[in-house]
Design a protein around this nucleic acid. Structure first.
Lengths: 151, 151
DNA sequence: CTGTTAATGCTACTATGTTGCATCAATCAA
DNA sequence: TTGATTGATGCAACATAGTAGCATTAACAG
């Protein structure tokens, strides 16, 4: 379930970081590798667990700041979608932005590689578009099959 | 600036509530009226200020619960988009779902009535779509004109 | 190896949202 | 109009997500 890299590796974590003039610290490296190894955007919590599993000691705040830096450098992106915590994923080619699916039963966020995000919507005059975010809400395949009334 | 009702009134607040078998309390009525009078989706904070301004006493928790009920009844919808607080707007006709614009400078969320949300994207097998959310991020007309580097 | 300074790891704090429970008041029936 | 019923409120306490300040540590250039 985690053998699929859904984003191009685009070089080793260390190089990605060094190319931006940042320091290749264990936290940043571990975060990038965790994101590469995971098929869906990860929350802070998930990332924290992944670092623990990888034996990488880390502080909650450090993780926040590492992610902040990765996003600021364009290495990762934040997704709002689900509940009120950010999710993060590595940022692939800009030309290949995809939508996300939020399962309202299990809370999981899934990448919809096939659903492209319309890149040029008709904006009112004066508005400048930076990026678009398309999130579909519903029940994922696993949750959809075992039907329940309540979320 | 607040004379435009961007959603069809669809009857008075009391009737909207009574039609769902709920009690027409001052909080719910005031929330609906505040949402009707405002041209953009409102946060809890904004709603709280609006109730204060209207002289409607309210508890923070009561407001959360009123909104929760309105959303559950399909009278209002929640939007994730901006920073990590929900925004709320009255739910118009289902056939006329629109996108939202999040200004990363002033934090405001604006309704893009002209940008329709694609209703039938190609979902993987087993997935059930409930609703779609399209949020565009960038700078709004006001902020875009006074250019600044930092968000 | 050493110095510089970017990152880290505390501690504390803010913002956002939730739970439990006693009290109040919207609605209904008489 | 007057209760009785019970949905909604208000309060206190808690939970989760994220941020700020600052002393300490460790990347990396030399």
């Amino acid at each position: 379930m985690s053998s699929v890299l859904h984003h191009p590796p685009a070089g080793v974590a260390r190089d990605l970081i060094a190319a931006r003039g940042g320091r290749a610290t264990r936290t940043r490296i571990a975060v990038i590798e965790a994101l590469q190894a995971c098929a869906h955007p990860m929350s802070h919590d998930e990332l924290g667990a992944a670092l623990d599993a990888a034996g990488v000691a880390h502080d909650r705040v450090t993780l926040y700041r590492a992610l902040e830096w990765l996003v600021g450098q364009g290495i990762a992106t934040r997704i709002a979608g689900g509940e009120r915590a950010w999710r993060f994923e590595l940022r692939g080619d800009d030309s290949h932005r995809h939508a996300h699916f939020h399962c309202e039963r299990c809370g999981q966020i899934v990448c919809l590689e096939d659903v492209a995000v319309t890149s040029a919507p008709p904006l009112p005059a004066g508005f400048e578009l930076d990026r678009s975010e398309l999130v579909l809400h519903g029940a994922c395949a696993d949750c959809g099959r075992q039907r329940e009334g309540r979320r």
